[in-house]
Design a protein around this nucleic acid. Structure first.
Lengths: 234, 234
DNA sequence: GATATAATGATTGCATGCATTTTATTTATG
DNA sequence: CATAAATAAAATGCATGCAATCATTATATC
C-alpha cells in the first residue's frame, strides 16, 4: 500500500504555509522591496507546483506585500513614502482600538505571554536584525489577538506587516532599544491604567517608531532567491 | 491574420472582472450570506475555467466577503453580530480619516460628483433595494477615492463592502431615506466646515446607519445561482 | 562604439484531467 | 416511518501542458 495522503498529518493548506514563510522572510528583511518572486522558483523551493505558489502570491498581493503585474514576475511590494505615512496613520487608529478593548482586562497568562515576547526582544537586541523586527511585530500582533475580535485582528496583523515592509524601504537599519522599553511600559499601562491613557501611549509609541525609523535610507543587495528562502522553507 | 488576442481590447484581468461582479451581487443582496458559490457554476456563468473562478473566490475570501473552507463549496460569508459591531468601529475610524483629509479641499468637480451620486440615491429610493444600497456604498467609496491615498482607499472600500454584507445579515430591509439627507449634509460640512466637525459628523452618520439597521432580521431564500448572477455576468 | 533590431530563452495565463473528499441519493434496517 | 449505512454524483485540490507574453542575448546597422 503506497502513501496516498501526505506524510503524517501534514497540513491541509500548503498555500497558507508558503504565505507564512514569505511574510516572515519579508518582515525579517530577508526579502527586500523589489525582490523578484518567480512562481517556478517558489514552487521548487517549497516543493509544490506553480499553481500553489501562484495562489500564495495572489494572497500576499491582496495583503499588499507583493506587487503583481500582468505577465510580469511578481516582486516584493515597494511602498512609497506617502504609503508609509498612510500605513502608520491607519495603524495608530487600529491599535488604539486594540488597547481600548484590552485596557484593564489582561489576565495573568496574557501579561506573561507579552512579557515573554519582550524578554525575547531583549535577548535578540544585538543579534540578527531580522529577529528583533519580527519580535517587535509579533508583540503588536499578539496584543491584537488578545481582543478575540477576528476582523480587528486581521486588519491589525496586515497593517503591522505592511508597516514592517515600509520601514524596510525607508527606515534606518533598525532601532529596537527604545521600542523594547516602550513595549514594557505599554503592558503596564494597559493592565492598570485607564483606557484613554493607554490608547494615547500606543499612539505615542507608534509615532515614535515611525519617526525614529523614517529618516531616509534605501537598500540594494543581490543574492539568489533560492538561498534567501532556504531557511524559510521549513 | 487571425484574432490572437481576445475580442476588441477585452480586459487583461478576468479574475478582477468576476470579483467586481460578485462584490456587486453581494452588496446588492442578490447573493445573501450563506449562499453557495461552486467553482464550476461561476466558471460557466462567466465563461471562464474553474481556475479563474477559483482565483476570484480566493480574492474575495481575502476581503472577507466569501468563506472558503477546505474541500467545501465556497459560501458568501456570514458575519456574526460581533463582527458587524467591529466592522463599524473600524469603519468609523477609517472614514473619519478620509473626512479629515478632505475637509476644505473638495473642488467643484468632486462636489459635483458626490452630489450626482446623492441625486441617484434620491431617484432610486423607491426602486430596487439593491440599487440604493449600492449607491449609498458608492458614495462612501468615492469619498475615500478622493483622498488619492491608495492604501486608505483600499481599506475603506473593503470595510464598506463588509459593512454592506453585515447589514444584509442583520439589518432590516433598508432605510435609505435618512441616509440620503445625511450624505448631503456631509458634503456641505466637508466643503466648508472645520475638519474635526466633519469627522464628528461622519461618525454620527455611520453610527446612525448602523443603529437604524441593526435591529435583528434574518434572511432565507432559495433561487438558482445561475439566475441570480445572470445580470452580473456583463 | 553606440543604438536599433531580431532571435532565443524564461515566465506567466489559463484550461484540462485525475485523485480525493464531500454532498446527495438510495437502500437497508430497527 | 424514521434513522442509519451504503452507494452514486458532485465538487474541490492540485499538477501538468500549451500558447502568449516578456526578458535577455546576440546580431546587424549607422
Amino acid at each position: 500500500m503506497t502513501v496516498k495522503k501526505r506524510s503524517g498529518k501534514d497540513e491541509g493548506d500548503r498555500v497558507a504555509g508558503i504565505c507564512t514563510a514569505l511574510r516572515r522572510a519579508i518582515i525579517e528583511r530577508a526579502l527586500l522591496p523589489g525582490d523578484r518572486l518567480p512562481e517556478d522558483a517558489l514552487g521548487e523551493r517549497f516543493g509544490v507546483s506553480r499553481t500553489i505558489a501562484r495562489h500564495a502570491l495572489g494572497q500576499l498581493a491582496a495583503e499588499g506585500l507583493v506587487d503583481l503585474r500582468r505577465n510580469r514576475i511578481a516582486v516584493v511590494a515597494i511602498p512609497t513614502f506617502e504609503d508609509t505615512r498612510d500605513i502608520f496613520d491607519i495603524r495608530v487608529d487600529l491599535e488604539r482600538q486594540v488597547v481600548r478593548h484590552l485596557a484593564g482586562k489582561l489576565n495573568d497568562t496574557q501579561t506573561k505571554q507579552l512579557k515573554a515576547i519582550i524578554e525575547a526582544e531583549h535577548e535578540a537586541r544585538h543579534g540578527a536584525e531580522g529577529t528583533s523586527i519580527r519580535l517587535a511585530t509579533e508583540f503588536h500582533v499578539r496584543l491584537a489577538e488578545m481582543t478575540g475580535k477576528p476582523i480587528l485582528i486581521r486588519y491589525v496583523t496586515e497593517i503591522c506587516y505592511r508597516a514592517a515592509l515600509a520601514l524596510a524601504a525607508f527606515g534606518r537599519p533598525h532601532s529596537s532599544e527604545c521600542a523594547i522599553s516602550e513595549h514594557l511600559e505599554l503592558v503596564d499601562i494597559i493592565s492598570t491604567g485607564p483606557a484613554e491613557k493607554a490608547a494615547a501611549m500606543m499612539k505615542d509609541h507608534l509615532e515614535a517608531v515611525a519617526s525614529r525609523a523614517l529618516l531616509q535610507r534605501s537598500g540594494g543587495r543581490s543574492r539568489g532567491l533560492m538561498d534567501i528562502l532556504a531557511p524559510y522553507a521549513e
